[in-house]
């Protein structure tokens, strides 16, 4: 960023710093904010000498990762499996169900209202019941993940599938398209952005579902670790587990966003043209 009025030596120095500046410029502002917060946290804990069972310093949490990683990561894998498997099941149930709701008057009038009404029941309240039915293994966790995440998938898919304009359906029929072609070539692609919005909402909910399920009854997973660490006043370990959960959630979300970009490439190319 050499200014027009800069003298020769100044320009030289600017040149030398240019690559460094470029790297620094490339770091998003949010990362700087995060670094600032962590520094403030560390300084506060040290200066005010907060006891570690109330609030451990970031460095202490990092230490925890190093010492306890061998237990942390296998448990993180368990939670991750519950999240991904449950989410996948929710998609496999939710999207076809949405199609059925849009195409069948019976399901739309006889089943859909019940699905919507069932959302008033807090899922956490059913969790102990599921434990009774499915035991302490993976099954109840996956069921809870499905229960939490499938609703936004269904709602958004239904909205997307319904949003095809009357003209679009007219157009399809005027070409002689059968119902399968109308669905596959018109309705479904038109609904994709809306379906993906639902999927993204569901990612956050599926992580919540897995952790809640582990709270209620589990012998492995990050939720279980948090519970055990909590009863031992091991706050650093709790933080370490929470960070793992956050990372799982973020990775999941960004993976989905990447899939979305692949599946919906036309979305990324918008707003290039002017108007005629």
């Amino acid at each position: 960023m050499a200014m027009a009025s800069a003298t020769e030596p100044q320009q030289e120095r600017d040149k030398a710093f240019a690559p460094v500046l470029k790297v620094l410029n490339g770091i998003p502002l949010a990362v700087w904010t995060l670094i600032g917060l962590l520094l403030f946290w560390e300084a506060y804990v040290r200066i005010a000498s907060v006891p570690p069972f109330i609030l451990p310093a970031p460095t202490a949490i990092a230490q925890e990762f190093r010492d306890y990683g061998h237990r942390l990561f296998p448990n993180a894998l368990v939670t991750m499996f519950e999240v991904v498997f449950g989410f996948t099941c929710a998609v496999l149930i939710g999207v076809p169900l949405a199609v059925a709701i849009v195409y069948s008057t019976f399901i739309q009038k006889g089943v859909y209202p019940l699905i919507v009404a069932s959302q008033t029941i807090p899922k956490v309240a059913i969790a102990p019941l599921l434990l009774t039915w499915f035991g302490y293994g993976m099954a109840p966790k996956i069921v809870i993940v499905i229960l939490l995440s499938f609703f936004p998938i269904v709602i958004n898919s239904v909205m997307g599938l319904r949003s095809a304009s009357e003209e679009m359906i007219h157009l399809a029929r005027s070409m002689g398209a059968n119902s399968w072609q109308t669905f596959w070539k018109f309705r479904l692609p038109h609904a994709l952005p809306s379906i993906f919005a639902g999927l993204k909402l569901a990612t956050a909910l599926s992580v919540i579902g897995a952790i809640v399920a582990e709270f209620i009854g589990a012998d492995q997973g990050l939720g279980y670790l948090i519970l055990i660490a909590g009863s031992n006043f091991d706050v650093a370990r709790q933080f370490a587990a929470i960070i793992c959960i956050a990372l799982i959630g973020m990775c999941f979300f960004f993976t989905l966003e990447m899939v979305e970009r692949l599946v919906i490439p036309w979305r990324n190319k918008a707003d290039v043209s002017g108007d005629a």
């Binding site: 679009m168 007219h170 005027s174 070539k185 692609p189 038109h190 919906i264 036309w266």
Partner: peptide
């Protein structure tokens, strides 16, 4: 009638 070609006021292009 699939032999006809139809154009509406809205272009009804498929965005994808």
């Amino acid at each position: 009638n699939p032999e006809a070609g139809i154009v509406f006021q809205k272009d009804v292009l498929l965005e994808w």
